[in-house]
Each structure stands twice: as structure tokens, then as C-alpha cells.
Design a protein around this nucleic acid. Structure first.
Lengths: 173, 173
DNA sequence: GATACTATCTATAAAGA
DNA sequence: TTCTTTATAGATAGTAT
């Protein structure tokens, strides 16, 4: 009821013809407006576009209404067949937050390839980490010396000598 | 017009009172049904729940319809105020794919937070990794032997002996 | 693509089961 | 919570701008 035009006078009274095609009964589906329509792809490109535009607005409006009326969190993303994007997200939140909640709640994972690769990298590094931990441990216990390279063994031999020296000094106390 | 009940007879004819509360004009908003409602949070918990249930179904239906009629990709996620989840995704695709497209198309990053935390974890683990690498290296070079316990040194001495033996054998070839 | 204008068809607020 | 019924407010198909 927003008098957006503030009628100044009866300047426009007859635009449409009174619709003179009454008995055109086709298959009944679910629709609305002047004629019913079936819920199946609208083949006429032009009609499809117009219907999309109107219904898209309708959905976004409904989404906004339910979010306000019922204090619900709503996220809607729509792509026209031409690939144009439209979206809605309830106030006080963000699509990000809604989707994070979605994942927690549904158990489904939504994130993209980038995240998968990041997660994979984390797994890889963690494994590398574990291996290194094990290796370190084995070295500390002196196992697996056979797998060391000659150069390394010599370095260790020298180092060990120093270590033993200080060890013997300590034991002498 | 799907005759889902196939009326067998006039078994129920009068259920409701003819609505005897005519002039209850409140503030006009936007609504529908027997009485108009404003688009503002419904305070009555019960009514809010009922309205949510009905409108939620309505939105999901509309989403399905537009996806079929207009060949559009639609994703809808709804959380009731109680936190229950409902969702819809057009056929032949997935929320994941729709959201990926959303990001590409809008330039908005939906996973910013997740992204940051994953990246942070990677940095943390890498650093841990580096530290371990350094420690391992120091052990290999025999530094820090002074901090080893006597028992460990003896074990290493023995192991080293084995290592040296096999080393000398290799060098003898 | 979006809007305007209607006639129609839907969605749904209320209330009770 | 879900369903039914009824009365209405909304949404929208068809058309023309």
C-alpha cells in the first residue's frame, strides 16, 4: 500500500485488452496468474527469462520475510540460466557463517578445491612431521646407524668422541 | 488438480466459524491469509513456529519450481530459530558447485575464516617441522651430545660401532 | 532484463482437530 | 508438529512498454 505514484488523475485507464481467450484449457499443473502452467522447463526463451526475473524476486522476498518473521537464518543463491547471480542472506549473519553452520549441522563438506588442497597439505606435513619424529627417536636410540651415509657416520664418530670425553669427565666426579 | 482424496461423500461440511471478527484493522504491512501480518518478528513462539514451517515449505517449493521452469541453479539453506536445518539444491548440481560458482562470480570468498585458520595451521606445523629438522640435524652432526644421558650415549656408542663396521666393510669393496 | 496492468491462481494466517 | 478448512492477501502468467 505504498502510494508510489500518488495518482494525480485518470491519465491511464486501459492498457490491456480484457483477455478474450477464455476456454484455452491445457494440461493442469501448478501455476498461477492468468493461466496455469505446468512445472516443466519453459521452452520459450523470452518467457523463461521473464518468469525467472519475477520468480527470482519472489523467492528473495520470501526469504527475507521468513528471516524477519521467524527469526530464521536463510541463505539463497540463484543463477539464471544465463549465469547471472542473485543472492540473499538474512541480516546479522553472512553466507560464510550460514554455510559453516550448514557443514557442522549436516556433516556435508562444501568447501572448494583450494580448501581440499590446503587440508591435504596439512595431512602431508603432519605425516612428514610424524616420520621425522620417529626418525629422531630412532637416532636418539642409536638404531638404524647402518642406513647412515659414510660422511654422516664420520661426523657422528667425531662428535661422539667429544660426547664420551665429557661423559667420562662427568663420571669421574 | 490431483484428486488425491477422491471425495467419497459430504462427510465434512462445517469446520470453521465463518470468521466473525471483521474490523480488526491493525497496521498494514505485507502478508496474506485471513489476516494481514506485518513483516516483523512474530513474538508468539507457537505462531512463529507454525509460520516458519509453512513458509519454509513454500520457499523450498518455489526454489524447486524456478529451477525447473527456468532452468536455473538454486541453492537454499534455512535454519529455524531453533537451529534445525532445511535445504534445497537444484537437480544436476550440488551446493558445493553452486557456491564455487558463487565465489567465482561474486568475487566474495565464502571460506575466508576457514581459509585463514587452515593457512595458520599449515604455518604452525611447518615451523614445528623446521625445528624438528634442525634438531635432527644437530643430533646427526653430534652436537648437543652433552645433553644426552649416559645410557643414551653408551647405546649410541655401540650402535656407532656397528655402523662403522659396516661402513668400513663398504669402503673395503 | 525490468515494469506495468489485470485476471487468476497460490500461499498462507487463523483456529481447531 | 502436522493437517484441515476458509477467507484473503500475495504472487505471477500473459502481454505490452
Amino acid at each position: 500500500p505504498q502510494s508510489h505514484h500518488a495518482g494525480t488523475g485518470p491519465q491511464s485507464a486501459r492498457r490491456n485488452q480484457p483477455f478474450l481467450t477464455p476456454p484455452e484449457e491445457e494440461e493442469g499443473g501448478g501455476g498461477m496468474g492468468r493461466g496455469k502452467i505446468e512445472i516443466k522447463r519453459i521452452e520459450n526463451q523470452s518467457n523463461r527469462q521473464v518468469t525467472f526475473s519475477k520468480r527470482k524476486n519472489g523467492i528473495l522476498k520470501k526469504a527475507k520475510e521468513i528471516s524477519v518473521l521467524c527469526d530464521a537464518e536463510v541463505g539463497v543463491v540463484v543463477f539464471s540460466s544465463a549465469g547471472k547471480l542473485y543472492d540473499f542472506c538474512s541480516p546479522r549473519t553472512s553466507l560464510s557463517r550460514i554455510l559453516e553452520k550448514y557443514q557442522t549441522n549436516s556433516g556435508k563438506i562444501l568447501w572448494d578445491e583450494k580448501h581440499k588442497s590446503l587440508s591435504a597439505e596439512i595431512d602431508r606435513i603432519k605425516k612428514e612431521n610424524d616420520n621425522m619424529q620417529i626418525e629422531l627417536s630412532r637416532h636418539l636410540k642409536g638404531e638404524d646407524m647402518n642406513s647412515l651415509q659414510p660422511k654422516e657416520l664420520i661426523m657422528i664418530e667425531e662428535a661422539l668422541d667429544n660426547g664420551l670425553t665429557s661423559l667420562h669427565e662427568k663420571q669421574a666426579l
